[in-house]
């Protein structure tokens, strides 16, 4: 635990993106997000223009974290599903593997039953990819040399530049 960085490569990212895209179409939902449990967006699909995706990711993670805390309080491992029903739009939030959160935003063009069904299938596929990413991370933490970090030469100047001076 602790400091195990999540490193995502092109091919994995493309696969995740594909699954998310398919889920969004198959479930007739408006938007689908894949978010990390720490609040960072991993992938998204659908009409994103009307949504502040960064805030959504952070608040979803906060929500899941709080719900996890509640689960532990009453002796459950976790609640694997959260559902928020609105007047027009609904949010279906589910846990994928150890670190993923899948968020589906849908309205009357879909239904909870359909979303549930499609999420189930997509979750399995997503989980496989997560496991792959994790496995690679673990094998690399042993022999870090094989993986050339692009950040091996960060200088003080690079950091000054980030802060605009």
């Amino acid at each position: 635990m602790g400091k195990l960085d999540l490193v995502m490569f092109e091919e994995e990212f493309t696969q995740l993106q594909e699954i998310i895209g398919r889920l969004q179409v198959d479930s007739s939902s408006k938007v689908v997000f894949l978010v990390d449990k720490n609040g960072q967006q991993i992938a998204a699909s659908g009409d994103l223009r009307s949504i502040d995706a960064t805030s959504l990711a952070s608040l979803t993670a906060g929500n899941v974290a709080a719900t996890d805390g509640l689960a532990k309080l009453i002796g459950e491992k976790e609640f694997s599903l959260l559902f928020h029903e609105g007047e027009k739009d609904n949010l279906h939030i589910s846990i994928v593997g150890k670190r993923g959160i899948l968020v589906v935003l849908f309205d009357h063009n879909s239904s909870l039953a359909l979303v549930r069904l499609r999420v189930k299938k997509a979750s399995r596929e997503l989980q496989e990819i997560f496991e792959m990413v994790e496995k690679r991370a673990q094998s690399q933490s042993g022999e870090s040399s094989k993986f050339e970090s692009p950040f091996s030469e960060i200088t003080d100047e690079d950091i000054d530049k980030l802060f605009g001076d």
Partner: peptide, 15 residues
Amino acid sequence: MTFINYASREINCKI
């Protein structure tokens, strides 16, 4: 946990 995305070339840090 820094999230480094090689596909979108982003680094995300939580402070």
